[in-house]
């Protein structure tokens, strides 16, 4: 095993042994299941819409296996993003709280290798988070289909692959922002506060006004949430409700991918630069 691979495995072993990681992953899966399937199904059962052919269909679509890609993807842009932002803040910020940066930085590797290993481990952990969401939601959709005697028809494999890729990119971007906030504020509390404030209020409010104030549109086109929703809207899941509500403007998938990659690289690069440059006290 190469040095880099060994470093990443080391950091992954740290991540999986942190209680906060499991709390956040658990919340991600349970809340996604609850809002996308359990609550939606209870609501559906209380008010069964009937189609022209007399069958109950219309609002059930998103809860069936055929809609699992769209339904799962709708959670990445805001809800999942906020959770991985917290996960990233906990991963990097707690190293300041525990003063463990100094312990790590006085070992053999330089700062760059250690920070890169942490970033890579975080990015690696996000992939199973995305996959697990599809697995859990897939099981829920099959269960609902069986209860409702509906056919189990899965989306194309390519749709799954695209959605997994999009989900990873969206969550990794939010995670990178969390890393940057944790490094910039040298801790967890302020970083989480600022991150949630930014995700909830700043991006949400700007997006809300962008449809009526034309000069705001270019600004919103550069924000994480707008590009994340633009990336997932093609999967048919719509947007989250409540504070995560997004009604456009949307950009192309190519532009969304590019903008998110810039955010990802920018936040990670800036965090790395700060870690290399700053004193560890």
């Amino acid at each position: 095993m190469s040095d880099i691979a060994r470093d990443i495995v080391t950091e992954l072993s740290l991540l999986v042994r942190r209680m906060s990681t499991w709390v956040i992953v658990g919340l991600w899966l349970v809340l996604g299941l609850f809002f996308n399937y359990i609550l939606a199904y209870i609501s559906f059962r209380g008010n069964r819409p009937v189609g022209a052919d007399g069958r109950v269909v219309s609002e059930l679509g998103g809860m069936l296996p055929s809609g699992v890609v769209g339904t799962t993807s709708s959670g990445f842009a805001f809800f999942g993003g906020a959770l991985v932002l917290i996960l990233a803040v906990m991963t990097f910020g707690n190293e300041f709280n525990w003063a463990t940066w100094k312990t790590l930085f006085t070992q053999r590797p330089g700062r760059t290798r250690i920070v890169m290993a942490k970033l890579a481990a975080l990015a690696t952990l996000i992939l199973p988070m995305v996959l697990l969401a599809f697995v859990v939601n897939g099981i829920a959709s099959v269960t609902i289909a069986q209860i409702e005697n509906m056919p189990v028809a899965w989306p194309a494999a390519s749709a799954f692959i695209e959605a997994i890729g999009a989900g990873w990119l969206i969550l990794a971007t939010w995670a990178a922002l969390g890393v940057l906030l944790a490094v910039a504020t040298r801790g967890t509390g302020l970083a989480i506060g600022l991150g949630i404030l930014y995700a909830l209020l700043i991006e949400g409010t700007l997006s809300g006004f962008a449809n009526t104030i034309s000069w705001l549109k270019p600004v919103v086109d550069g924000l994480i949430r707008a590009n994340a929703y633009s990336l997932t809207q093609g999967f048919g899941g719509g947007t989250a409700g409540g504070p995560g509500l997004f009604n456009g403007p949307y950009v192309s998938v190519a532009q969304a991918t590019a903008v998110l990659l810039v955010w990802l690289a920018g936040c990670s690069g800036l965090a790395l630069w700060l870690m290399r440059r700053r004193d560890v006290v």
Partner: peptide
């Protein structure tokens, strides 16, 4: 080196 207070991961 042990600089100031020993710093380790509390959960390990």
């Amino acid at each position: 080196a042990m600089i100031e207070t020993p710093a380790f991961y509390p959960f390990l």
